[in-house]
């Protein structure tokens, strides 16, 4: 088994009704639960706050966000899968895809 990082980008935080938000949340919980039950969820990971700092210019330039909505990393999880093909296949059920977001599937480099 190899490990992969799912990076969730974009596709969230626009205004929604209470019921719509609950439905999105439940879809996520169902999807995560499915991954966990099949032993693919190494670490549920975390959501990220939308704000943050960008440090550049050799450490001299420090700016606030702002991140383009579509690039905003909303969170990450750690996945176990046979290979990149399987990890990619598993990501296709992610609810973020229904809302214009994307999942970046990145193999974790081994020592």
């Amino acid at each position: 088994m190899s490990e992969f990082l799912y990076v969730y980008r974009g596709g969230h935080r626009e205004k929604q009704s209470a019921e719509a938000m609950q439905q999105i949340m439940q879809k996520w919980m169902t999807w995560m639960q499915g991954l966990a039950e099949k032993g693919h969820l190494k670490d549920r990971g975390h959501p990220l706050e939308p704000e943050g700092k960008l440090v550049s210019g050799g450490g001299k330039n420090i700016t606030d966000g702002p991140y383009a909505e579509k690039d905003l990393v909303g969170g990450y999880s750690l996945i176990e899968a046979k290979d990149l093909a399987q990890a990619t296949e598993l990501s296709r059920g992610c609810p973020i895809l229904e809302r214009g977001g994307l999942v970046e599937v990145r193999p974790i480099m081994r020592m």
Partner: peptide, 17 residues
Amino acid sequence: VQDALCRALEVWKHHGM
């Protein structure tokens, strides 16, 4: 309220309710 529900959505989708 919108913000609180958003936070719940983000946190619970990773960690469950």
